[in-house]
C-alpha cells in the first residue's frame, strides 16, 4: 500500500496506462497540477474526487485511504444508495491492448432492460454472456463491487463493477 495520496494517484494512473497529460486533460486541469498532486505538494480539489477516482478505476475510499474495499460486499439495507445513484462500470481490456471503460448509470440500465435491450447492444462485443437483469437484481439486493469477472480465451479481460 502506498503511503501518500500523491503516490496512490501516480500508481493508479500508471496502472490505467495514462500519462499525467492524459489525466489532466480529462479532469480539465493542467498537467502541472497533476504533477504537484503526485509529488504531494498540493491536493486535488474535493469536487474532482468522484471524477478522479472514476478515471483511476478505484473508489474514493481507496484513493484517500489506500485501503482496498472487498471485491464484493453486501451493503446493509439502511446504508444502501438508491438504485438511481448506482453506476455499473464495465471495464474491458482487450488482448490487443485496447482499453474500454463504460460507466452506465443503473437508471439507464433499467430503462434499457424495460425497452428490451441486452448488454452487447448497449456496450458492444464480448458481453453476450453477461446477464444484465441478474446484475440489476444483485444491485437491488445491495451487492456492490466487482460482480462479474471474465477472462477471454485470447487473454482479454472483462469486469463489471457496481458502486
Amino acid at each position: 500500500m502506498n503511503e501518500t495520496l500523491g503516490k496512490r494517484i501516480a500508481q493508479y494512473r500508471k496502472a490505467q496506462n495514462m500519462t499525467q497529460e492524459n489525466l489532466a486533460e480529462k479532469l480539465g486541469v493542467s498537467s502541472q497540477a497533476v504533477s504537484k498532486w503526485e509529488t504531494d505538494q498540493t491536493c486535488p480539489d474535493i469536487l474532482l474526487l468522484p471524477q478522479l477516482s472514476g478515471l483511476l478505476g478505484i473508489s474514493i475510499d481507496t484513493l484517500l485511504t489506500g485501503e482496498q474495499s472487498p471485491a464484493v460486499q453486501l451493503i446493509p439495507e439502511g446504508s444502501r444508495k438508491p438504485l438511481d445513484q448506482l453506476v455499473m462500470h464495465i471495464i474491458m481490456n482487450d488482448a490487443n491492448g485496447d482499453r474500454i471503460r463504460i460507466n452506465l448509470p443503473m437508471v439507464l440500465v433499467r430503462a434499457a432492460l424495460e425497452i428490451g435491450l441486452s448488454l452487447p447492444q448497449i456496450a458492444g462485443r464480448g458481453l453476450e454472456h453477461i446477464d444484465l437483469e441478474k446484475v440489476l437484481q444483485m444491485a437491488e439486493m445491495g451487492l456492490s463491487g466487482k460482480l462479474v469477472e471474465m477472462e477471454e480465451a485470447d487473454g482479454g479481460r472483462i469486469e463489471v463493477v457496481v458502486d
Partner: peptide, 18 residues
C-alpha cells in the same frame, strides 16, 4: 432516464476508449 443518468455521472465520462 438520460437526465437522471447525467446527474448520476456528475462529469464522469459515459464511455472512455483508449
Amino acid at each position: 432516464a438520460l437526465r437522471k443518468a447525467k446527474r448520476c455521472l456528475n462529469g464522469t465520462p459515459l464511455a472512455d476508449i483508449a
